[in-house]
Design a protein around this nucleic acid. Structure first.
Lengths: 245, 245
DNA sequence: GGCATTTAAATGTCTGACAATTTGATTGGC
DNA sequence: GCCAATCAAATTGTCAGACATTTAAATGCC
């Protein structure tokens, strides 16, 4: 199709794009071996280092993997969920930090997405999901927990909620939204009182899912979003006040 | 923190990871210039080609950009939404095709995510969003439209719906879900009758958003999901029958 | 002072070589 | 004949040095 190589791009970028197209369009199947670097260099009429740079670009996106030795080489990679998770989280985190997305916008997106999972989660949650959520709630109730640990537990709780929907595509899409929020959440100082409020809402969510009550879970999530927004606004106000002094 | 360089990884991968950590952890800020390749080579005690491969890895993830010439070099990239979109779509598409995700699972995820946008979209949709949706509906009504063009218009319609929520983070997260479905949707042959049904549901969604009626939009989306699932099941059944012959 | 030229710095590319690693065949011992 | 150790071949990983290309700043001319 789009066989027009961008003339302004570097050679290594053009070659990477050509191979990427071949993979994405299905002309190369999973675990198929690419020609050796020397052969590719000849095919594209470039030198081996140039081919290597192209292959490294693809390797960075987990599209290929390489192995040394005889019968080694570059292979079309079977993209696993965990690889995709990692990339999505990195990209989402950077996007949030670099575009200076407001706490409000990120929070709104995150909870909107989580509510999308709720009806499915209420339907399909298994005992393991509930157990994870209960365990994280218990951890969050412990005194002396650092703010970072509280945040991490919060993420684990919400991931369990997402996973309870039993849809790997949904879990993948939401991994970025939930994890990327963590740096923003880490700016918040969780007082004993706010922790108590969050734990209570988490419990309500777990209870609702256990009772297969999607509406109750959604309502609790709405309240949690509102409460989180309040906490975020307080932090931002405090920051602004400090900066204005 | 994790200053333990993975000894089994390639040098170029280790260097890429070191620089990536520096960027992600904020030790390098946006638009800051990295040392030249020669300086990096000296710092890490490796050769220039090795450094270059590391930089290409980062460039593939849009973490850095490079410029030639005096005062050129590698700069920490300001990750724009469109860059992130592209990466997410590529990753999502591959993930769906390689893990052989069922049409059902992908479809369920997509519509669940879209419904997450609906309340916000009903609240904030502007005249431009409605105009885009109406235009795409009009295109979809035209006879003689190829299935690919119909699918592309469908994607455009749904992207307008997502964008109407007015939350860039949400738009980013959903870009992958909506676009990655397109190859799966392209397997469907849209008859005149099914197109008519889809157009009618699209119109109901646009009407509902125009009336700020989130519930009506959600209900239409539910019906659209059910109808799409039916179409998908028919295709799969036909395929299975053909394969079984 | 403004414009064309030069120059320097940096990335992009090439060539050739060697090191490291893995697989498969060969060879030797029993 | 069978098994193990060894060796050869193929391939990626790394290095060194060189040249081409591009870009912006410095310089000189008018």
């Amino acid at each position: 199709m789009k066989n027009a190589p961008d003339p302004k791009a570097d050679l290594s970028a053009q070659i990477a794009q050509a191979i990427r197209d071949a993979i994405v369009e299905g002309r190369m199947i999973v675990d198929e071996r690419l020609p050796s670097e020397a052969e590719l260099a000849e095919q594209f009429s470039v030198s081996r280092p140039t081919v290597r740079e192209a292959l490294k670009r693809l390797a960075a996106q987990s599209l290929i993997r390489t192995a040394r030795g005889a019968f080694g080489g570059a292979f079309v990679n079977h993209l696993r969920y965990e690889d995709a998770y990692g990339q999505q989280i990195t990209t989402s985190t950077l996007l949030l930090s670099m575009n200076a997305v407001s706490f409000e916008t990120a929070c709104e997106a995150r909870y909107a997405l989580e509510r999308a999972c709720t009806p499915l989660a209420a339907d399909r949650r298994g005992p393991d999901h509930l157990a994870t959520m209960r365990a994280e709630i218990h951890r969050q109730s412990q005194a002396g927990l650092s703010d970072e640990a509280f945040c991490a537990s919060d993420v684990a709780f919400h991931r369990a909620l997402v996973d309870a929907a039993g849809n790997p595509v949904l879990s993948y899409q939401l991994a970025g939204a939930v994890e990327a929020m963590q740096p923003l959440m880490n700016m918040i100082t969780f007082t004993a009182r706010s922790r108590e409020a969050i734990v209570r809402l988490h419990s309500r969510i777990a209870d609702a899912l256990q009772a297969h009550d999607a509406a109750a879970a959604e309502s609790a999530l709405h309240e949690l979003e509102a409460y989180t927004q309040t906490l975020g606004r307080d932090v931002m106000a405090a920051r602004a006040a400090r900066a204005g002094q």
